[in-house]
Design a binder for these strands. Structure first.
Lengths: 339, 339
DNA sequence: CAGCTCTATGGAACCGCATCCACGGGCGAG
DNA sequence: CTCGCCCGTGGATGCGGTTCCATAGAGCTG
């Protein structure tokens, strides 16, 4: 087995307290004593147990990251940002992939007792009310990414505006029959962003006095395949849309697939705009609304580190940081044809 | 603060040992007593501290995953597999992204004291000898993914064969001027797979009695950009290759970029084959050697769980599992032109 | 009915570290 | 020279569980 602090103390002929002081760089240890202790540590190849240390200090040096559908490229990008932010800190990253409601329950359960991690980063998920309650009552710092909530600081983008940006672009290209493919709104995971993007879509249409047709608004899941079959439905409508705004690039790619299957040319016969600007998008030339995914994770990580460092008071819980969006026009959007 | 097991014991009018027995579902607790305890637990909204539990049990219920360049799509896919394997287990996932040698040092340091995690999964990385020593001397179970090592069980593919598969495909299409773009071989991270793929490439050439030209073998990094500029060099050679085998899809995409920049048509003037079959590959129609990335992570996770469950003896450390490879022919490879 | 076994339960030690508190000795000040 | 203070140090306690061991009582056997 490994040696303990007591072994070191015995070998060095000192007390455990002194060893602990040496380990933690405390003052008030005579140089000769320190040397003896260090020697003993070396001789025994002693390494302190982080576990015991944590229990004693009531800190874990762990940051929990709760992320739904780690599957999705955008989520991965965000986690990468978090990992980068944490790289230079003493904190380690505990990853919780939530792929079902039950798992979500589990993850929050794990964390509400605050001694599993020192802080929590929740990505693209609005915690249910009872969890909010528990998280607040504990003193566990929480930062939200891509999900606003009055109770916690968050890093977000203006999804409504993003939806407007995309839709307005299509309107300006002359499109009037513009469909929307998004997520089911009050879904069990409570994704917030898709809902807001829908609102942006609606607003842009209203602003341009374009009629909103309910049959053009479809909601499915983030999945590529679901979006594809949804889009096939859409493109088989008697009066089919000339443009589609998808609430995520993954879904937009599904729409492109659908167009390919139905032999509908893009952008001549159909314009498609996505959201996120994930890696693939540049390859396939997808027009999309870029949001800084990596950056959102990095900022959230940094914010949490700041709070952990004691800046909690100054920041306050209503601290919300908004990152900027940008429309990236590529080759899947073009002018509406005369018809 | 949170209530402790002692609070529960007091409220229920029993001893802490009994509460512990109830918590852990031990037998020999009278039903009425059990009920009283459960009632107290409920009243206090008590949750046991995993931390203290771990210290006492000398288990952490954490599996550490060390992965270099979490950036890369293939690494992500593997981690997803691990996450899936662990989802139904009581183990949590601690993620260590290694982007520099220093970080690697840090990660291994963290783990060699076994009480940070119960098991370690090392992805695409061969641990340095001194770490092997420490890991072995501790009783920390280790499973390697995409990296063989005699000291640990591992999940691998036959990279040599993969290299042969890709190269032979090109040879059969009539290509003779076949270049290779891979990683620098004895790199600080000690990636193993690229080296073996190089050997497969060499073997296939030798077997077909095609001359191996040193100037056709280039080594850079996993990065897309590096591969692109490497490929540009390659394609500007006086006698430029008619086909390129890239050691990863990421690199193959860089080669495709290079071809686009130089206005070299694929596959008419240049055939490109990659390795991995990451998501994007299907989109861009890249011919590639598919390896089960997700599956490798899942299998490794399961293997580690088995070992943790006590199957360590039967399996032995020399246990190596080889997953199968498959050549996926898409549209970036075609017959060599008569010249 | 004595003696024994088995069940239910509580007390206390332990996991490995941090730290409060007490204490002894050296040293400066009066 | 003595008093008090501060420095260096060690013992004991706490963090919040688990579990060994001792014990009391119930039930059973002869």
């Amino acid at each position: 087995m490994h040696s303990t602090i007591a072994d070191v103390a015995t070998l060095a002929g000192v007390g455990v307290a002194t060893v602990s002081r040496v380990l933690n760089g405390h003052a008030n240890v005579r140089p000769t004593t320190r040397a003896r202790v260090l020697e003993a540590i070396d001789a025994l190849n002693y390494r302190p147990s982080p576990l015991a240390r944590n229990l004693s200090l009531r800190r874990t040096h762990v940051i929990g990251v709760v992320v739904p559908f780690f599957t999705s490229p955008s989520a991965v990008e965000r986690v990468r940002g978090v990992a980068t932010a944490l790289a230079r800190s003493p904190y380690d990253l505990m990853l919780f992939d939530i792929e079902s409601e039950e798992r979500r329950e589990h993850a929050f359960q794990l964390f509400d007792r605050g001694d599993r991690s020192d802080g929590l980063l929740i990505v693209s998920l609005i915690p249910p009310d009872d969890e909010v309650e528990r998280l607040r009552s504990g003193r566990l710092p929480v930062v939200l990414v891509d999900a606003p909530h009055p109770a916690f600081p968050s890093i977000v983008v203006d999804d409504v505006r993003g939806g407007e940006l995309a839709t307005t672009h299509l309107i300006e290209l002359g499109h009037r029959r513009i469909a929307f493919v998004g997520d089911k709104s009050p879904d069990p995971f409570r994704f917030a962003s898709s809902r807001d993007r829908t609102r942006g879509y609606e607003r842009a249409l209203a602003h341009a006095r374009v009629e909103l047709r309910p049959e053009y608004v479809r909601e499915g899941t983030q999945s590529h395949h679901v979006a594809r079959s949804t889009a096939i439905d859409l493109l088989r409508l008697p009066e089919r849309p000339t443009a589609v705004f998808a609430a995520s690039d993954t879904q937009a790619l599904g729409v492109l697939d659908a167009a390919r299957i139905l032999r509908i040319r893009v952008p001549e016969e159909l314009s498609v705009v996505g959201f996120d600007d994930i890696d693939i998008s540049a390859y396939v030339g997808l027009t999309t609304v870029r949001q800084p995914l990596f950056e959102s994770g990095r900022r959230a990580g940094e914010l949490l580190l700041q709070i952990l460092a004691g800046a909690g008071q100054q920041l306050g819980n209503e601290h919300t940081e908004q990152l900027s969006l940008e429309l990236v026009i590529r080759s899947t959007t073009g002018p509406a044809r005369q018809s």
